[in-house]
Amino acid sequence: MGAITLIDAINLAMAWEMEHDDSVVVLGEDVGVNGGVFRATAGLQERFGKERVLDTPLAEALIAGISIGMASQGLKPVAEIQFSGFIYPTIDQMINHAGRLRSRTRGRIGVPMVLRAPSGGGIHAPEHHSESNEAFFAHMPGIRCVIPSSPARAYGLLLAAIRDPDPVVFLEPTRMYRMNKQNVEDNGEALPLDSCFILKEGDDVTLVSWGAMIFETLKAAKELEADGIGCEVIDLATVSPIDIDTILESVEKTGRLVIVHEAPLSCGVGAEVAALVADKGLFYLHAPIQRVTGYDAVMPLFKLEHDYMPSVNRIKGAIRKTLED
């Protein structure tokens, strides 16, 4: 397999798993003949049939709810929510049922489903299409929330998500769908759902980010290299539950932590990372933890979205601040 985009990788992962496991079905709005509005499911219905790639009525709570029903009876549904702002009707089903059933039935009924959705801004989309809502799902017990940030990780993490015996919310950074290409081997190999990925090693500051913000974070790290500042860049990838050990190991080395995410600051996943580091690694820190995030405001329409989303300059400023003392 040659170089492919993140959206191609998502498509490949679903196709691989459908090819190898008859219990995997894909459902959502426009996922069939149309192949999804972002083309994530392109060609799947043609290849696997209408029984396995289902265009649902336009009802997001239904999509989540029927996925739970299907999963409870032996299928592995991979459901698509079309845009990030439409995911909220699924929250009732996800928190009250998907995340609870295994626990409340003492293991009798599991819910091996994946809820896929695009996430984040930066593609000049209409209102309600650009939100970053991982914190809602990170707050739900029993739900794993995963955000890939490269084609290879999208492929491996989605495979793992489909194979996981419990529900996974898989948020795909819309801005990265076609941002760059990467060589991905279509070999069915999954990546772990319980660990961060160290994308760049460095000794001076630890940068933790996820999703599309990995792009700006890596850029800031590279630009500061010229000034002799060594940044270690960690892709959180699974935002819940958090692999805190990898982060702590890095912070022990660097003594400094900058967290970057696109979602609003307050009660964002960054707050949890910061709290965990304060809890378990306070004395590693040489400087206060910095968070570079979206603002505690409604995600603006696209004329202003780039002022809302953390920029390379804002990230560099935060990194320098941790080095001031």
């Binding site: 289902l54 989540a64 996925s67 029903g69």
Partner: peptide, 17 residues
């Protein structure tokens, strides 16, 4: 009413198989 969705999903699984 959330249980109605589960029944629909289960019925889909039976129909599929």
């Amino acid at each position: 009413a959330t249980q109605f969705h589960h029944a629909v999903g289960a019925a889909m699984a039976y129909k599929y198989r």
